Amino acid sequence: MYTLQNKSLKIAVNPVGAELSEISAVQNTNQFMWNANPDVWGSFAPNLFPVIGAIKNNSAIIDGEHYAVPRHGFVRHNTDIILEEQTESKLVFSLLYNTDLLKIYPFKFKFTIQFELIEYAVKVTHIVENLDDKPIYFSIGGHPAFKCPVFENETYTDYYLEFDTEENSESYALNTALGLITDRTFPVISEANTISLHYDLFTEDALVFKDLKSKKVALKSRKNGTILTVDFPDFPYLGIWAKPKADYVCIEPWLGVADHEHHNQDFKTKEGIIMLPTKQTFKAAYTIEIDPKHLV
């Protein structure tokens, strides 16, 4: 486990999957990340690359060939990730393509993820370099799970999410048996900017938003105010999810989504897919800022 600390925050990152596994206050005992209880959901904040969610029939078609790209990609749980740089405020991890990965994803790439402490915040930056002699295709996503409730005097239903602007947005329903996006939608936010959390909110899996105007969402407690804010200016999609009746909520900035249930499996035409020309570099970042009143 690698750690960073400033006067306010401490973070820890597991080199396996380069997974952010702790955000805590230095001056008190407050913890803000889910504890990855394996009996409920044994992850903290998986990094999603080169796909988000499920691939139809567990097979992507790339240039006429089938490739078994795993659900959420192959960065999470990956033991080949290396620590490339460590400073007083920054941890940088990278994954380079190899023979085994080329069998399931036929592109030469370097994936880098950087964690930077900036006062009360953690900035997570994804960098993809195209090392191939052809364009490469990918999606990127974050999956951080935040403790909810944070304090002993609270319950899950004391919490809500607040967006930075009023929204009229529907969630795209998932085919829960397959994990694929459907055309069915259901209303979640109508002329409002909040979603109240309750244990039945995710009985049909994640909320998937494609058309939010907001680029910030705050996790708030009716008893203790703003807990944290996720700022995701580079990400056009947002997922919100938790296991039913679990004491956390995932706020997930995405560049891309799971396959549509009627998709033809052509990887290059997936919704939200990024095409990166040869020898080019792509960057996208989101920031998790803890409200400073909870750090003293």
Rank of each mutant, 00 (worst) to 15 (best):
Y2S: 04
K10R: 13
P15I: 14
V16K: 09
G17W: 09
S21G: 11
S24N: 05
N28K: 09
T29P: 01
N30Q: 02
Q31E: 13
W34N: 02
N37S: 06
D39P: 00
D39Q: 12
W41P: 00
S43M: 03
P46I: 03
P46T: 03
S59H: 05
A60M: 08
A60P: 09
I62V: 14
V69D: 09
H72W: 01
G73I: 11
N78Y: 04
T79C: 06
L83D: 03
Q86C: 10
K90D: 06
V92N: 03
Y97K: 05
K103G: 14
K103P: 07
K103M: 15
I104P: 05
I104M: 13
F107H: 11
F111E: 00
F111T: 01
T112R: 01
Q114S: 12
F115T: 03
E116Y: 07
L117M: 03
E119T: 15
Y120C: 12
A121V: 13
A121M: 13
V124W: 11
V128M: 02
V128W: 06
N130V: 15
L131E: 13
L131K: 13
D132K: 14
P135G: 02
I136L: 15
Y137I: 12
S139G: 00
H143M: 02
P144G: 02
A145Y: 08
F151W: 08
N153F: 08
N153H: 14
N153I: 10
T157Y: 01
F163D: 11
D164G: 01
S169I: 13
E170A: 11
S171R: 08
S171P: 07
N175F: 08
N175E: 14
T176C: 05
L178F: 10
P187W: 11
I189R: 07
H198C: 04
D200H: 10
D200M: 08
T203G: 02
T203C: 04
E204H: 10
A206P: 04
A206R: 08
A206I: 09
K210Y: 14
K210D: 05
D211H: 15
K213S: 09
K213F: 07
K213H: 10
K216R: 13
V217C: 03
L219G: 09
K220E: 15
K223M: 07
T226H: 04
T226G: 01
I227D: 05
D231N: 07
D231F: 11
P233H: 12
Y237E: 11
Y237C: 04
I240C: 01
W241P: 00
W241S: 01
A242M: 06
P244Y: 13
I251N: 04
L255P: 00
D259C: 05
E261T: 05
Q265N: 14
F267Q: 04
K268C: 03
E271M: 12
I274R: 01
I274G: 00
L276Q: 10
Y286A: 00
I288G: 02
I290Y: 00
K293G: 01
L295M: 11
L295S: 07
V296A: 07
